[in-house]
Simulated assay, not measured.
Amino acid sequence: MELRQLQYFMKVAQKEHVTQAAEELHVAQSAVSRQIHQLEEELGVNLFMQKGRNLQLTAVGQLFCKRVEGIMKDLERAVTEVHEFLDPEQGEIRIGFPHSLGIHLIPSVVAEFKHRYPNVKFRFKQGKFPSLIKDLMSGEVDLAFVSPFPESHDQVAGDIVLTEELFAILPPNHPLAQEESISLEQLKDDKFILFSSGYSLRPIVWDACLQAGFTPSIAFESEETDAIRGLVAAGMGVSLLPEMALFQTNPLQPARVPIAEPKVTRTIGLIHRADDKLPLVAESFRNFLLRYFGLSNENTPIGK
């Protein structure tokens, strides 16, 4: 069994079409077909079955694909580690984060790290909490910012790097817009604009409203921080957002007012796979982030 056969097999499994796989691999279609045929002969099974004009993995093909995917990721990691050993400042950092951190935090920390190590590359993935955990466990990313921090997860380790206060955001002409602070109960009769289900800020806001003695009435649900801010500024409702999501990106801005009761916060954690050694460059970035958030005094350069 050759590496080339596994590479061709994975590409056909992904594209479900030999011609398209051959085009992406920049080889002849016959070469792909021959390698797949030889692989099936060696295994003594059919890995694919015809479905219309496409190919579909058989049951045993799906099982084989899952295992090969893990092998290919391990091989990619091994190659990366060799390159980083030769020149750790040329490595790639793969990091996931929720949308709300992409407005200010991620650009800030990446810019500072790139200033020190300009040749380091970054690969980013945005997502909701469940997809970020999934990306971390599958090896799609090496590090992930998540909120809330997962207090108990057997396969995840990390640190709470930040606890952030949430503010009430109100239309500029709202009766409470000029207050120094408010209680959340004062918004019980307002319509709320919340994140859609699956976003970690939604249950934080929902639970805070319940703690304040009311169930929020939802006017609109969104998947974008900018949309929530804009709709509130336009007078469509009220919401709660962390300070990090309140950096101005357009002229139309809502009023923001601190919430005195109850205090509403979210935790932001930096996590990694618990039983997996980070690549050198990712470990160096993690140490940099812990220093950035004041959690470590260690000052270890890349490769040391």
Rank of each mutant, 00 (worst) to 15 (best):
Q5G: 08
F9G: 02
Q14T: 07
V18A: 10
Q20K: 15
A22T: 03
E24A: 15
V27F: 10
A28H: 09
R34E: 12
Q38D: 12
L39I: 01
E40N: 05
G44L: 05
L47S: 05
Q50N: 11
G52V: 09
G52D: 05
L55P: 05
T58K: 09
A59M: 05
V60T: 14
Q62K: 15
L63I: 00
C65S: 14
R67N: 14
E69V: 02
E69A: 13
G70M: 06
M72N: 01
D74E: 14
L86W: 05
E89A: 11
E89Y: 01
G91T: 02
R94G: 00
G96Y: 11
P98M: 03
P98E: 00
H99G: 07
S100A: 13
L101I: 06
G102N: 11
I103Y: 06
H104K: 12
I106G: 02
E112A: 14
H115S: 14
R116C: 09
V120T: 06
F122A: 10
F124P: 01
K125G: 00
Q126M: 15
F129H: 08
S131G: 07
S131I: 13
D135M: 14
M137I: 15
S138A: 15
S138R: 06
V141T: 09
L143K: 01
P148M: 08
P148T: 08
P148C: 03
P150Y: 06
P150F: 04
D159N: 12
D159T: 14
E164R: 03
I169C: 00
I169Q: 02
N173E: 15
N173W: 09
H174A: 08
P175R: 06
L176C: 00
A177W: 04
E180S: 13
K191H: 13
F192K: 08
F192D: 01
L194I: 01
D207L: 15
C209Q: 00
Q211K: 13
A212Q: 05
A212T: 04
G213K: 08
G213L: 04
I218W: 08
S222P: 07
D226G: 08
L231Y: 07
S239W: 00
P242N: 04
P242R: 00
F247K: 14
T249N: 09
P251D: 11
L252H: 12
R256C: 08
R256Y: 11
V257G: 04
P258N: 10
P258E: 10
V264C: 03
V264H: 01
V264N: 02
R266M: 15
L270M: 04
I271T: 00
R273L: 04
D275Y: 10
D275F: 12
L278Q: 09
S284L: 05
R286A: 11
R286T: 08
N287Q: 15
L290V: 06
R291P: 06
Y292F: 15
E298H: 10
P301Q: 09
K304V: 13
K304F: 14
